[in-house]
Deep mutational scan, measured.
Amino acid sequence: MEVRTIKVFTTVDNINLHTQVVDMSMTYGQQFGPTYLDGADVTKIKPHNSHEGKTFYVLPNDDTLRVEAFEYYHTTDPSFLGRYMSALNHTKKWKYPQVNGLTSIKWADNNCYLATALLTLQQIELKFNPPALQDAYYRARAGEAANFCALILAYCNKTVGELGDVRETMSYLFQHANLDSCKRVLNVVCKTCGQQQTTLKGVEAVMYMGTLSYEQFKKGVQIPCTCGKQATKYLVQQESPFVMMSAPPAQYELKHGTFTCASEYTGNYQCGHYKHITSKETLYCIDGALLTKSSEYKGPITDVFYKENSYTTTIK
């Protein structure tokens, strides 16, 4: 009895394709271990004539594949690729409408935090270190965002349907971005203890939790000093293409032309909904596939993004 075979390709990165001759009487799992086709788990399936010449994702289970996976995804987590594939199996079914010149995501599976993050990423200057993220990001900007969303979920250790947080998501993504040249110098002034300067680099240099107003941050924000008295913390120097200011959701007025974009969060910790506000020729609110415009805006804002380049204080 002759062994019926077909020729397929296996890959971990969709760049390096490895030619395989597979036995049609055995499952993919018996031949390769966990195997995925377009995100779908085909591990328990036997090869079919229609699979001839198709590319299958496999887990990096030998040295060659491990090197290829690390170079593309910059992670050695053995569960990463499987999590990416199972997320992709959902995100490829989502709709990605162009809204006001940006790629958004039609609401499904509690994905409003991903839509808000995706919209924000198209408006701030950011370059990702893992080629996987950078490639998928370019495709997302062009309207094909399924891979990018699935990668975000995998890097953030999230599953489809789980509630997510924009600030946490951005923080994970910033860790995989090139923020080497970003720098922030802060000064804390206390009447009792004097003053202390701190220099922050990388992710810490672009994120701040405690106030939404970048102007206020430049002037000074009140913080408790270690001595128990009130101290003032203010920005001395900022070198970065953008800054992200966050605070627990509270009524906040966004003035046209003073910011790049913002995240609105309605609801409580267990259950809520994100919308995205962007400042173009007027203010726009993007909620999944829905767009509304207004000249002014007041609502429960939790993150505001500002364009920056270089700032030095005039406070002496």
Rank of each mutant, 00 (worst) to 15 (best):
G194T: 06
V166Y: 10
I301C: 07
G101T: 02
A69N: 09
T19H: 10
Y234G: 03
A115L: 10
K229L: 12
N309L: 12
Q230W: 12
A132P: 03
A142Q: 14
N14F: 01
Y269V: 15
Y172G: 13
M24S: 07
S310W: 09
C149G: 07
I277V: 07
T120M: 09
Q98P: 12
T266L: 03
I45Q: 15
E125M: 13
A247F: 00
G82P: 14
N61K: 11
P60N: 15
Q30A: 11
D180N: 15
T312F: 13
L235C: 01
A132F: 03
Y274H: 05
I315G: 15
G210T: 00
Y214C: 00
Y269M: 15
N49Q: 15
K280R: 14
H48L: 13
Q216M: 07
S246G: 08
T199Q: 09
L65M: 15
K218L: 05
E52F: 09
T19P: 14
T159H: 12
T75N: 11
D13L: 01
G202L: 06
D62A: 06
E68A: 07
K229D: 15
E264R: 02
G164P: 05
K93L: 12
S181T: 13
L88S: 04
M207A: 07
F242D: 01
V185F: 01
Y72T: 08
V58F: 07
L119W: 06
D38G: 11
E253M: 10
T232L: 11
K7M: 14
V304E: 00
L291N: 09
N111S: 01
G53A: 11
L114A: 07
K7G: 10
A69M: 13
P60Q: 00
L88N: 02
A154G: 03
N14R: 14
C156I: 09
Y265D: 06
E239M: 08
L235Y: 03
I152K: 00
Q98T: 14
S310K: 06
T116C: 15
M85W: 12
D109F: 03
L200G: 01
T35S: 13
E264P: 02
N157E: 08
Y138P: 11
Q195P: 08
N147D: 13
F128R: 05
S50Y: 12
F32M: 08
L212E: 03
G161E: 08
L212M: 03
L200D: 08
H276S: 07
L81N: 15
Y73I: 06
L173P: 01
S295Q: 14
D38C: 11
A132N: 01
K183T: 09
T302L: 04
Q31V: 14
R83D: 01
V12I: 00
L65C: 06
V166T: 00
Q196W: 11
T292V: 09
N157C: 07
V160G: 02
G299R: 08
R4F: 07
E71G: 07
Y73W: 03
K293M: 13
K307S: 12
I6W: 04
K54I: 13
P34Y: 11
D135S: 10
W107K: 10
Y311V: 02
T43E: 11
L151H: 01
Q270K: 10
L283S: 04
L17E: 10
G220S: 01
E71Y: 04
A142S: 12
S246M: 04
K95A: 10
K316Y: 15
A115N: 07
P131M: 01
T10R: 08
T75D: 08
P130R: 05
Q270T: 15
Y137F: 14
Q197Y: 07
T302V: 10
H90G: 13
E215H: 06
K275C: 06
L200F: 11
V185L: 02
D63P: 14
T76A: 14
P131C: 04
D77P: 03
H273E: 04
A108L: 01
P130C: 11
C271L: 13
A142M: 12
K127N: 12
E144T: 04
V304R: 03
Q134V: 08
T27Q: 13
G194M: 03
F9E: 10
Y297S: 03
T292Q: 10
L254Y: 00
G39D: 08
N178I: 06
A231I: 00
Q30K: 14
Y36K: 03
N16T: 13
A69R: 09
I15Q: 13
A140E: 06
G288Y: 14
S246H: 03
H273F: 06
Y28E: 10
G220D: 04
E144G: 06
K92I: 10
H90Y: 11
F56M: 12
A132M: 07
Y306L: 04
Q123C: 06
T169D: 07
Y252W: 07
Y155P: 06
L186G: 04
N14L: 10
H48I: 13
A231E: 01
V243R: 01
S79T: 12
N129F: 02
L283P: 02
M85A: 05
A250P: 01
K255D: 08
P224K: 14
D287W: 00
F217Y: 03
L200Y: 14
S246N: 01
Y138E: 15
A150G: 05
K92Y: 10
L290T: 12
G143N: 03
A40I: 09
F80G: 04
L254Q: 00
